[in-house]
Design a binder for these strands. Structure first.
Lengths: 209, 209, 209, 209
DNA sequence: TATGAATGAGACTTCATTCAT
DNA sequence: TATGAATGAAGTCTCATTCAT
């Protein structure tokens, strides 16, 4: 086997390979050798960069989540000027589209799958990812309430109401996807969710936009 | 070694034991011997009742889900007389409370965790469990629309909007539970979710109840 | 492979096999599979009886040492009636002959070889084996002094003076054996050692037997 | 990274590092990288100076033993004028003190530990070290007999009687050291051993000094 | 000479599963 | 039905050694 030399890129390559393998076989079903092969390395080389298979998972989840959350934060930041409703719609749409990409939704799925066995990974996700999402939701909510646009609901409820449908959609289109009946497109769903989150299910005569 | 149990009860006992063990260590981390021991049997005896470790998981999920869905169906059935809104509130509350029990929420968590490796279990859950939930949601929605109480939203959207927050809550209180910051009680959350699902986030002058 | 059934004898068989393999390849060089094969078992079966390769070593050393020390103690016990000199001669001869058997001397050699890496095994040998040898030497010495037959030397010195030459002989005939120049027979050496331990190297006119 | 060392000193530095690492972790437990790091080199550089990990061990043992034996030979040489007894006492004392230094006794311990797996190292030690010790003992014995001071014992017996107690003492204070019960000082033991080797254990009326 | 990334053989250990009893 | 000893296939991780730079 050729001995190449691209030290700087290696960890990223390994993580890319790991994402593919974990997505295909799950964490437990994935073999380090599979990851190594897909990264164009030998088994041992993987251990030069990561201490254990588990460390690969942790790094992978962290990287995947960080990208999406970082972008989401930027998006909310950028929405400072517009209405809270508009910001919420943007955020919901962005996350929904992101989470429809199996390469990205792999992160929470892996975390959920493995955190029974390795509780630290659940804790990491909670502290690194969810905490930031919580902050985002809380900020938008506060602003909306201050503007008189939103009802004064509990942030924890809004978190569940915004995040839940997206997560549910993600599961329904990955884990529980029916090959015969493909679900609706993510942006359609995102709009539907946003409309309902904002307006609710009940019929009424709208007195405000 | 008191061996006074009726053999007929064995499979149930094994499933009870499996639930406990899977919940504690995850599917991959659970050993058949652990299950056997907890069921008061020897390893080999388990194989008299189940073909494989995997068959245990499938049977367990089926049983857990069946119980909850069956009850939910009964509840909706019973709600034929009342308003669609009331039925939906009841359903949401029931599922939220059920899913707050780790022994029950173990089913979807296990399915999500394992279906990457064993897609059949995801398919089974979709066909056996989710299909019934879809039917329930669709029925309530149709009725609500017919009564002029609900807006005409897509059932797939409502499914995500109703199921998602509950699933999210479940994950937040199991997988991502922060021991230092216990979340809100399930019935509080259920009411909050129901209020928001029905009324939305936006402030408005109510013109109808 | 045939599945036999002799549970009771298995641990002993594994230990016998382990002795052979450890003697041939050293502890580090021995593979559990080698031991298993020689014991007529599969690799996995070994782990039914021992927790680890290391546990095999510990059990083996304990067993080997226990046999010899037990016999030595019986011998000293039996020598209660005879003179201390006679008892010491018997003991020296017995140990020398025993230690000339590579199957038996394997124990201290393995302990010495591995205790750098696994200090507990050195501690175990010290507490289980050497402590008993110390007691034996101390008892004989006390008796000899009481009888007026022995000089009043420190037990620790006598321990070294009696045990050392035997250990040295063992090493010279195992680890450092020269295939071209076989050393003297163990009983000849034992007698020589005993004579010298008792009489010393210096020429003198004997005034007592 | 001060790299001011003269390349010529490298092998010595590597051996010094190897001694420390082997002493701490044993040969099998030592990693070449550990040795390299302690020597202030990279793993690969070690292989510039030594063909293999094993070659390091061999060179190390050779060096350690050579130093001690060389000094011992000089000591015996210097004792040409004095009595055989005095020479023997000096030699015993010198070796006992040397062997009480774990850095020096590491050599025989490593040889004993590894020669099961690598018989050549045992052979090397026998031919390079033990042969010289044998010659030393034989020379002193011959002289003592010629002077009428020593009894006519077999050199092989004397070798064991002189070397054995010292080796035993070495093991008792290294491998089998009880942290709670430190043994006697080496010079005390050396004198005790010399006294006994020369005078024996039996009580007698001394008729000569 | 020196580096250190990469290799690749191999070892221990774990279990799901089988089967003689 | 039940046992539990036994199997055997895997899998993670380690490390001596090599080699391009």
């Amino acid at each position: 086997m050729a001995r190449k030399r691209r030290p700087a890129a290696r960890p990223e390559e390994i993580l890319d390979a790991a994402l593919a393998v974990f997505t295909e076989m799950g964490f437990a079903g994935a073999r380090v050798e599979d990851i190594a092969t897909r990264a164009g390395l030998s088994k041992g080389a993987v251990y030069v960069y990561f201490d254990s298979k588990h460390a690969i998972l942790t790094a992978l989840v962290r990287r995947l989540a960080d990208r999406v959350i970082g972008a989401a934060e930027a998006l909310v930041e950028a929405g400072a000027a517009v209405s809270a409703e508009q910001t919420l719609r943007s955020l919901l749409g962005f996350i929904a589209v992101q989470m429809s990409d199996p390469k990205i939704s792999a992160a929470p799925r892996l975390v959920i799958a493995e955190s029974q066995r390795f509780p630290e990974i659940g804790a990491m996700y909670r502290d690194v990812v969810l905490a930031r999402v919580r902050r985002l939701i809380a900020r938008i909510l506060e602003k909306g309430i201050a503007q008189g646009a939103f009802r004064d609901v509990a942030p924890e409820v809004l978190l569940r109401l915004c995040g839940g449908p997206i997560v549910a959609h993600m599961f329904l289109t990955t884990v529980f996807a029916d090959p015969d009946a493909p679900g609706p497109a993510p942006d359609v769903i995102a709009k539907g969710i946003a409309d309902m989150v904002l307006n609710g299910l009940k019929v009424r005569q709208e007195t405000a936009t």
